[in-house]
């Protein structure tokens, strides 16, 4: 009992002490002494606070710089990647622009009304023969023997070999190429054969001796054999080889296409025969 009483009095003492402390603190607030206490403490602390503040700033600035270097590097890598993406996009858009211009040309000539066309791009040339590689194949509906033309309605050649994703196009100047052709003349019909001679050269052969051809005459396709649509431009006669001994006349023809400018071509998948 004595112990309990002692404990009780101790607790009461403690509660009184706590209440007294609270009262003192309230008095300090009430009398406005708190501002004086704070001011005194600030005055004592300010030199040390100034040092800590400056050191904090410096340390933070140093750490920020390190962090920023990392961020700049990361940002630079991101921009580099973005730049590459944009360059690729520009290249793609330029390609589309070129394709668009080619299609516009074709539309202006009304090619789509005469033929069923499939656009293809030249991807390479055989180094040993006059054969081109285009980026469309049997998957796109191309078959062997399909005529290939430029947007300007100039005959390039025939599809020689077809693969699922690409095709080989034998040019008119290829040594194996043999195309029925005629000179575009108003009054008379001069029919012959355009034979490939290799190295982008064509000869117009089997011209009857009684027919008069001149340099500058244009050579176009005929419908003979139904291999080609009519009036596709083959080239221009640049030289006539007349000989009384031979049964036929021969002429040298300059192709109407320039291999350097060939990019977008049209494969004629169907035409009116």
């Amino acid at each position: 009992m004595i112990k309990s009483g002692f404990q009780l009095s101790k607790r009461i003492k403690f509660a009184i002490l706590l209440a007294a402390l609270a009262a003192i603190l309230l008095m300090i607030d009430y009398l406005g002494l708190d501002s004086r206490i704070k001011n005194a403490l600030f005055s004592v602390s300010s030199p040390l606070q100034n040092i800590l503040w400056e050191q904090g700033q410096k340390t933070n600035s140093f750490l920020e710089t390190i962090r920023e270097i990392g961020e700049i590097k990361k940002r630079s890598e991101e921009l580099e990647l973005k730049n590459q993406e944009l360059k690729a996009e520009i290249a793609r858009l330029n390609e589309l622009k070129g394709e668009n211009e080619t299609l516009r040309k074709a539309l202006n000539l009304g090619l789509e009304k005469e033929f069923q066309l499939l656009m293809a791009n030249v991807t390479g040339k055989d180094p040993f023969s006059d054969v081109l590689l285009i980026d469309k194949g049997s998957d796109n509906g191309i078959t062997v023997g399909s005529p290939v033309i430029t947007p300007e309605k100039v005959l390039i050649g025939l599809v020689q070999e077809v693969f699922p994703g690409f095709s080989r196009v034998s040019l008119l100047s290829d040594k194996k190429s043999l195309v029925s052709a005629q000179v575009q003349a108003e009054n008379e019909e001069i029919v012959g054969v355009a034979k490939g001679q290799g190295n982008f050269k064509i000869a117009f052969d089997l011209i009857p001796q009684d027919k008069k051809i001149r340099t500058g005459d244009l050579l176009v396709t005929t419908t003979l054999g139904n291999f080609f649509p009519k009036d596709l431009l083959i080239g221009e006669i640049v030289q006539v080889d007349e000989s009384d001994v031979k049964p036929f006349q021969t002429a040298q023809v300059k192709t109407a296409f320039d291999i350097e400018n060939l990019k977008a071509l049209f494969v004629i998948t169907d035409f009116k025969k």
């Binding site: 602390s45 040390l48 606070q49 100034n50 800590l52 503040w53 050191q55 904090g56 700033q57 340390t59 933070n60 750490l63």
Partner: peptide
């Protein structure tokens, strides 16, 4: 006291 000063004047920058 120093912990309070350290926190209010130094660590506050980070």
């Amino acid at each position: 006291y120093f912990l309070i000063l350290f926190q209010t004047s130094f660590l506050v920058h980070f």
